[in-house]
Design a protein around this nucleic acid. Sequence first.
DNA 1: CACGATTAGATCGGATACGATCTATATTCA
DNA 2: TGAATATAGATCGTATCCGATCTAATCGTG
Lengths: 155, 155
Amino acid sequence: MTRTSKAETKGRKLSNFLCFAVYSANLAFGRAYKPILDAVGLTYTQYIAMVALSEEDEQTVSALGEKLFLESNTLTPILKKLEQSGYLSRTRDPADERQVRVSLTPAGRRLLDKDINVSLVEATGLGDEFPVVQKTVARLRDNLLRNTRADPKKG
Amino acid sequence: MTRTSKAETKGRKLSNFLCFAVYSANLAFGRAYKPILDAVGLTYTQYIAMVALSEEDEQTVSALGEKLFLESNTLTPILKKLEQSGYLSRTRDPADERQVRVSLTPAGRRLLDKDINVSLVEATGLGDEFPVVQKTVARLRDNLLRNTRADPKKG
DNA sequence: CACGATTAGATCGGATACGATCTATATTCA
DNA sequence: TGAATATAGATCGTATCCGATCTAATCGTG
């Protein structure tokens, strides 16, 4: 008696999908940031990459990729674009020519000093919940990555 | 005395960005779904679109877009692809030739009946928190969209 | 030292997102 | 009625993401 063909009775509605909540929240963030980032001529991903770079100089592409959960296939074009814009430098590491060291230029740091993001915290409408939501979503991400990556070779 | 140039003292670290938590959680979901969706030959977005279609037949592209927070520029190519795969039908509405009505085919419904998503709930590692996180992220998205869209013409 | 294996980036093709623009159909109202 | 306007999709260009593959540099071992 539990078998039906109606979507609702099986609970298969978009609102029931956590993945959709995250997917659409990400789209919403992109749109919220857009007018602000357009003003400084950066895209969402470019901005995130620069924030990651502001944490440390001379990072390799891989190290940066670990922070951003991206790989060279995605990062290389973005970094080249930011280099052309004069916001960062890319140089082969003399000690290991395979590696590329990436650092923000003074122009890049000046751009970040505008504290672009501050005005966005308000738009989340989360108030005091903000840090809790942030930690929860980060935990969700880490669980997903842990439970997915390195598929069960040992079980 | 509050002005410094160190990233850390200004709290400008990736882990402090809610937008990054959401961005990376979305990437993580995409990767978690990938092996499961690869098996049935769908992409993440195609799957989401089909779930939205399973809620109601004969939806217009715009109506579908409202649910998915996407517009025809993104949806049209995806719907055409799913049509070619035989999972849905697209027909101009005879009453208004501007509109395109989209419905799942029996093959499309059979695909969804496999309840692909069930196995993913577990991978979130959220346990009882699952529904709460889902609602919180959805609220975040709605706040962002409300506070961003239709920029302040009225003040 | 030499040669196979490994590693770090880069390149390429397919699939989203999205702004801007285009086309076809409907609607409005003088 | 018919020209101006509005609306629904579709198309195009740019920027991500990602799997697969390629190249160059390094390492490991005999």
